[in-house]
Design a protein around this nucleic acid. Sequence first.
DNA 1: CATGAATGAGTTTTCATTCAT
DNA 2: AATGAATGAAAACTCATTCAT
Lengths: 220, 220, 220, 220
Amino acid sequence: MQSRKAKKRSRGAAAAATTEAEQTRANILKVATEEFATKGLSGARVDAIAAKTLASKRMIYYYFGGKTGLYSAVLERAYADIRAEEAQFDLAHMPPREALRRLIEVTFDYDENHTKFVSLVSIENIHRAKYLSKLPSLRDINQSAIRTLEDILQRGRAEGVFRDGFDALDLHLLISAFCFFRVSNRHTFEALFDCDFASPRLRARHRKMITEAVLAYVEP
Amino acid sequence: MQSRKAKKRSRGAAAAATTEAEQTRANILKVATEEFATKGLSGARVDAIAAKTLASKRMIYYYFGGKTGLYSAVLERAYADIRAEEAQFDLAHMPPREALRRLIEVTFDYDENHTKFVSLVSIENIHRAKYLSKLPSLRDINQSAIRTLEDILQRGRAEGVFRDGFDALDLHLLISAFCFFRVSNRHTFEALFDCDFASPRLRARHRKMITEAVLAYVEP
Amino acid sequence: MQSRKAKKRSRGAAAAATTEAEQTRANILKVATEEFATKGLSGARVDAIAAKTLASKRMIYYYFGGKTGLYSAVLERAYADIRAEEAQFDLAHMPPREALRRLIEVTFDYDENHTKFVSLVSIENIHRAKYLSKLPSLRDINQSAIRTLEDILQRGRAEGVFRDGFDALDLHLLISAFCFFRVSNRHTFEALFDCDFASPRLRARHRKMITEAVLAYVEP
Amino acid sequence: MQSRKAKKRSRGAAAAATTEAEQTRANILKVATEEFATKGLSGARVDAIAAKTLASKRMIYYYFGGKTGLYSAVLERAYADIRAEEAQFDLAHMPPREALRRLIEVTFDYDENHTKFVSLVSIENIHRAKYLSKLPSLRDINQSAIRTLEDILQRGRAEGVFRDGFDALDLHLLISAFCFFRVSNRHTFEALFDCDFASPRLRARHRKMITEAVLAYVEP
DNA sequence: CATGAATGAGTTTTCATTCAT
DNA sequence: AATGAATGAAAACTCATTCAT
């Protein structure tokens, strides 16, 4: 009845799928990410996921307990992935202005390249973060992202390149909002305003705009 | 039952917007907006909508053809409403800086006060604007919003209070992104960062931030 | 989601199924009684019930909400039926000894002729009366059966044909136990002791035995 | 894992009832008795049994062939146990009236103390003794129970303390019915009549009643 | 226009059993 | 002898839609 997740994961997240069971699990997760991201929780079909999987439908219930269990696992993995990638950028050792600029660009590029993550987060918001709330592991991961930004701001203020009077979390919101919205809402935006967000020129222009706007906002 | 029919017929077809038929339609639309906004297209239940309606389920099919027809109508109405409200603000006769500041605040307040609209747009993006694309009426309405902004920018540049080098549509994106995201993604954001977007203080701080950031970005 | 039972039943139990809807409901109930009585709650198959019904499987959910809702309705009906039949015997106007003898015979005959009722009660006991407990209507009906017996005993004691020193409910238990067990446990009893409870001779002997045993027990 | 195997082999196959294999079998049987008695044959879950077992699910198939094989084994064991206990009472050497009284009390107490046995028999009757019929070993065991009663009756008749005109098997039915029903049907009875069969006072009263009723029935 | 009843096709979930190791 | 992984068949349940009146 219960999913085997806890047990399976006991050897740590770093160890890549090595046993067959872990490969099965990972394969289901990958297929499910695609289905949930494009169809939503209620629109996704367990049958459709199973069909694209190397395993049988029954395995979804064996490993994840059910449709919502699978959805939660997909969500958890998606969030874990983004922070894992962010952690790779060594922003702590850059000069503060460079670090902030880089942070914005990294955020922009991540959302641009992980539209499935963006979709999943949109979907989860439709559900009022019902499933995310039950994944407390993610809280820590995300709050470390804020600490990175706080560190950059503190160093910048010490050097006098950033002004006072704004909050790290608010700035994170300003950056995230643009990068996320550009991906999450591109379909309605394109439909209404007849433009093409996939064009490299527009993409570059937007990337430049959010960077400049944020830097202008923080400068003394 | 018969009295209702007689009553309706007696006043003639000319009286617009007050027919019983139109009241039924409006009632269904209102209930459906709530259901679709909170559950999504696939998550919404025709039965649930019918149950909350004064009319019967059959009426949904009679007036809107089906579930997706109803969804399209809900979407169309939601977009029409926002532009109707925006049109009320006479930004064209304000000084450009004031007009831009006011435009940002109006956008911020609208999203804040119309969370159902925000949800519907998020949902429509999950569906890749499939239904919105088939509502060409909206294109014109929305593009007029851009023309309003273009007019403000043009006046501002003529007066020398705004710089050159950025696009009206891009600026619209910058403003919309923040105002929309703040509402659309508040559930995951709150869950991850333990904050409360409903608090008047945070709300005021965010409203100020996006205004300042945009004004800083456009100034020469 | 909710069953329509309450609504359907609103015109009182006395009115036989007259509308088509009531016929459908009654038909499902009849088929389901057979299936649940022979297979138990978990052994019964909704598909099997639907197949033997004039209606479709969907109607079971429409009228009864689900498998357990249907089971509860079957149980309720079965108990209501027995008390309806018992009420027809005018025991209150017989001499007490005759009335008691008749009560025993009526109980014996009812169980003998309603093996499905007996099975359903056995099944409900496996489930620890979980579903019966939620049907409070039955409590009143059954307690009136005890009052009938109490009345007979009181009259008998007044006439001096019954002794004191025993309880009406206990006597009801003594009578019920034998009549019920003889039907409920006949299969294992026959298998173990190689006898045939269906034989009219054995049946008559058992009927005579319980009558005599009870009368012997109550006489002064 | 390997140590278990080595250990088992080392003590040889001759030591009956203490092999690990037999302990595993007994453990499964015990767990399964509980599950079948509370859930029924179709309601019981092989997974649930396996989970509560010290062994794995595969062992159920290894030792018992499958779910119904396990059920049959549980049933067989339950019947064997009751007769084993009954055989301990040396009724043959008591005066007939005392022996009969004692037999009734023993039966009453056994059912009272072995509610799982009672449940299993009820369940088996739902299945029309399908599985019991295939366990011929039980027939002999049970018929010996009747011979015990026949012996008591014969001695009692010879002494003139019991009358003629009734059958040993019928008397067994009268006794069993009450003792069994009191346990098997206590849930519905309690729900309908608002009483508590677990109360020592009621228990004692019932025990006395069945004893007196039977003795009154058999006396000349 | 309006309604309650009805439905077929689909969707999630369950479960006894078997397989590879 | 033993285990975790896997499965196909079947089960319960759902839902948008339509029909008879």
